[in-house]
C-alpha cells in the first residue's frame, strides 16, 4: 500500500541481473512508459493546440483567472488537511491502544477499518444524504439543529471531512499498520515510560518520529484521495476541485484538461519532494555504516 506513494524505499535490484533480464526490463519499462505517457501527451497536446489557431498556452493562462478555480482548489486542500489531521488523530492513538492494551481487538479493528473499501461510494453517499435529511428533521426542535446545519456549511463542509475520514481509513490503517510493524511498540513504550515519559511525550517523541514515513504515506494517500474525490462531494452538492473540473469541462474543454494535467504535476512534485526528504534522512542515518 505504502509503495503506492513512492515513499517507501524499494530494495535495490539484485546485482546478479544479467544482460537478458535487463533487455526484458527495458521492454517492460518502455511498454509502461508508452501506456502512461501517450494519454498524457495526448492530453497535453489537446490543451495547447487548437485547430486553426495553432499552438498556444492560453488554456493555462486562463486558469488563474477562471472562475471557481482558486476557491475550489483551496476548498479541496483545506478539506484534505482537515481530513489528514482528523484521521491521524483518530487512527494512531486507537491503533496504539489496541496494540498495547487489547491485542485481541486487532482483528475487529482491521475489519472495521477495511470495510469502507467494500462499500461503494454511491451507497455511502446515499446513506449520508438520507441521514442528513432525516437528521435535520429529527433535530429541528433541539439545539443540535444548529450543529447539523453548521457541518453542512458550503464554505467548509465538515460533513465531507467526516465522509473522507471514513473513505481513507483503509489506506491510513494499512500505512500505519505497516509502520508499526517495523518496531517493537510495546518495548519502546515501556522503555520510554520507564525513563519517565508521560503518554503524550512518548507519543510525540517516540512513536511519531519512528513512524514518519508511514505517517507521510498515509497523509499523501489521503491528500490524493481527497483531491480526486468526486462522487460524495458532487452528490452532496459541494464544489471542491474534482467537481469543479467536471463542471467546467462542459463549457471549457481545454481548460478542464489543463487543470487535470496541472494537478497531476502538482501531486507528483509533492510526492517527489516528500520522498527525497525522507530518502535523504535515511541516507544520512546510514552513512556511518
Amino acid at each position: 500500500m505504502a509503495a503506492l506513494t513512492g515513499l517507501e524505499r524499494v530494495s535495490a535490484p539484485a546485482p546478479a541481473a544479467r544482460t537478458r533480464p535487463r533487455v526484458w526490463r527495458g521492454v517492460v519499462f518502455l511498454l509502461s512508459a508508452v501506456y502512461f505517457l501517450i494519454p498524457l501527451g495526448a492530453s497535453l497536446w489537446y490543451t495547447i493546440y487548437t485547430p486553426g489557431s495553432g499552438v498556444s498556452l492560453a488554456a493555462y493562462g486562463e486558469l488563474l483567472t477562471a472562475e471557481g478555480f482558486l476557491q475550489s482548489l483551496a476548498l479541496s486542500l483545506g478539506l484534505a488537511v482537515a481530513t489528514i489531521v482528523m484521521v491521524l488523530l483518530l487512527a494512531l492513538p486507537a491503533m496504539l491502544a489496541v496494540r498495547l492494551f487489547a491485542p485481541r481487538l486487532r482483528v475487529v479493528m482491521e475489519v472495521l477499518c477495511t470495510l469502507p473499501l467494500v462499500v461503494p461510494p454511491i451507497t455511502f453517499v446515499a446513506g449520508i444524504g438520507t441521514s442528513l435529511r432525516t437528521g435535520t428533521e429529527v433535530l429541528a426542535p433541539t439545539p443540535f439543529w444548529g450543529t447539523i446545519i453548521a457541518v453542512q456549511n458550503p464554505a467548509f463542509p465538515v460533513v465531507l471531512v467526516l465522509a473522507y475520514v471514513v473513505l481513507v481509513l483503509p489506506f491510513v490503517y494499512r500505512s500505519l499498520d505497516s509502520g508499526l510493524r517495523t518496531m517493537d511498540v510495546r518495548t519502546l513504550v515501556e522503555a520510554a515510560r520507564n525513563l519517565g515519559a508521560s503518554w503524550p511525550y512518548l507519543l510525540f517523541r517516540v512513536i511519531v518520529p519512528n513512524l514518519r514515513s508511514a505517517l507521510a504515506s498515509a497523509s499523501f494517500l489521503t491528500l490524493a484521495l481527497v483531491l480526486g474525490e468526486y462522487t460524495v462531494a458532487s452528490l452532496l452538492g459541494y464544489q471542491p476541485f474534482a467537481v469543479w473540473i467536471v463542471t467546467v469541462s462542459g463549457s471549457k474543454g481545454q481548460l478542464s484538461v489543463a487543470v487535470s494535467i496541472l494537478s497531476l504535476v502538482l501531486i507528483w512534485l509533492l510526492l517527489l519532494a516528500v520522498s527525497t526528504v525522507f530518502g535523504r534522512q535515511r541516507f544520512g542515518k546510514e552513512k556511518g555504516k
Binding site: M183, D184, T187, L188, E190, A191, A192, R193, N194, L195, G196, A197, S198, V206, P209, N210
Partner: peptide, 19 residues
C-alpha cells in the same frame, strides 16, 4: 505509575529508540 518510579530497566532486546 510506571513513569514516576525510580527503577531503571534493561529489556530483552529492541528497546533502543531507533530514531
Amino acid at each position: 505509575p510506571a513513569n514516576k518510579r525510580d527503577a531503571g530497566m534493561v529489556f530483552q532486546s529492541y528497546s533502543l529508540f531507533p530514531n
